[in-house]
């Protein structure tokens, strides 16, 4: 039996009827057509489906939508303030060549958002450890690490 729940996603409230076995990833992609969040494995290993729930990174493929009533969900679509401006992490990913095929990118960026919230000035080792749940097959990660360093610098200097 479906349950009607209200999800708070990127500041908007969506009312959806879900079966209990419906994952957040399915609700985002199929019901709400917020397809920026990807699905790469379905087992929580690749991180392409990463979103923030109450500011923390989680795998949307292993999260039941029914459990998210009242929680604050942020997806890649909710990161940039508007279509003109980008979030500094997005800017850095673009400028530093951290994006190739782009399929891991939304998840990488959401993991970065979580990382920099927890640790605004991470060392390179901390950045790499912070990406433990995000696989990329194109870049070899180095330019992603560069982008995260760049974003951390911009974000912490602007908040100083």
């Amino acid at each position: 039996m479906k349950t009607v729940i209200t999800l708070n996603i990127n500041g908007d409230r969506y009312e959806v009827a879900v079966n209990p076995w419906r994952t957040l990833n399915e609700v985002l992609r199929e019901d709400l057509k917020l397809t920026g969040t990807k699905l790469g494995c379905g087992t929580g290993d690749c991180g392409a489906c990463t979103v923030l729930v109450d500011g923390k990174s989680v795998s949307s493929c292993l999260t039941l939508a029914i459990e998210l009533e009242g929680r604050e969900i942020t997806t890649i679509e909710g990161l940039a303030p508007n279509s003109e401006e980008l979030h500094p992490i997005q800017e850095s990913f673009i400028n530093k060549g951290a994006i190739q095929c782009g399929y891991c990118t939304p998840g990488m960026i959401m993991s970065t958002a979580h990382l920099l919230k927890q640790n605004p000035r991470p060392t390179e080792a901390e950045i790499r450890a912070g990406l433990s749940g995000n696989l990329c097959r194109c870049t070899g990660y180095n330019k992603i690490v560069d982008a995260i360093k760049d974003a951390a610098e911009k974000m912490s200097s602007s908040s100083d």
């Binding site: 199929e30 397809t35 890649i76 673009i94 060549g97 939304p106």
Partner: peptide, 23 residues
């Protein structure tokens, strides 16, 4: 020139459509 990819922005904001994104 080391220019950023022409499609980096659309990918960075999650708007790039891959086959499974087509509904």
């Amino acid at each position: 020139q080391s220019l950023p990819r022409a499609d980096a922005r659309i990918k960075a904001v999650g708007a790039a459509q891959y086959a499974d994104d087509i509904i």
